[in-house]
Design a protein around this nucleic acid. Structure first.
Lengths: 107, 107
DNA sequence: TCCTGTTACTACATTTTATGTAGCGCCGTG
DNA sequence: CACGGCGCTACATAAAATGTAGTAACAGGA
């Protein structure tokens, strides 16, 4: 039973489960920080701004259960093929976020 | 001062502020549920699965401050032009989530 | 062998955030 | 003027995240 019941997603619709997973604190950030190369636990923790090890570990576990990241004992945590696909969908956010920040600042 | 200090995003980099905002509980879900048409407060609350009015209101305020949604007194809450752009970036997620769910199930 | 450092975590008390339920004030209809 | 729908707000309880400390495994050096 890999697709364990995720918080509030009782519909069974994948998009809801995904939005729920990605909407948890630090999850988007973790995936983002793994975009370049694998990272070790502590390195990752510092990159995302010093979240507690408790929650970092919890999220890493959830992401592993979701097949988005995996552990390479040689290199640390890295995105799976699936995780990389997801990241690709998110890359345009980087560019868009600049535009957004500008618009918000001017409002 | 619109770009108020968001949780943990001290870098000033827009992408970090954006990931932080979108990583808050219910935010992705709210944007998603506004994809088709404007929704009223209570309607939205039920669509996303019955989050408390307290938090729904908090998130709606944050999203308004981020210029992603706005209120139309006639119709309720709706995405701004900026919000719709963001949503467009997320639409591929819908299709991808099906593939992801399948892969996770088989793992 | 013992010391030191690095790794990935876990424990737990405190603080922050979300929930659940109730209810308020405003408006339009009958 | 009662009624229902609207967008909230109040507040006590419950859940989640933080901060700090510490554990256990492994590696290299004296």
């Amino acid at each position: 039973m890999v697709s364990k019941k995720v918080r509030g997603s009782t519909t069974g619709r994948p998009i809801m489960a995904l939005l729920d997973l990605l909407g948890r604190r630090w999850v988007l950030r973790i995936v983002w920080e793994l975009r370049e190369k694998p990272r070790r636990f502590r390195e990752l923790q510092e990159l995302i701004g010093g979240a507690s090890p408790t929650i970092v570990n919890t999220r890493l576990r959830e992401l592993r259960e979701a097949c988005l990241i995996e552990i390479d004992p040689e290199a640390g945590y890295r995105l799976t093929a699936l995780g990389q696909e997801l990241l690709k969908l998110f890359l345009p956010l980087h560019l868009w976020s600049e535009k957004w920040a500008k618009a918000v600042r001017e409002s």
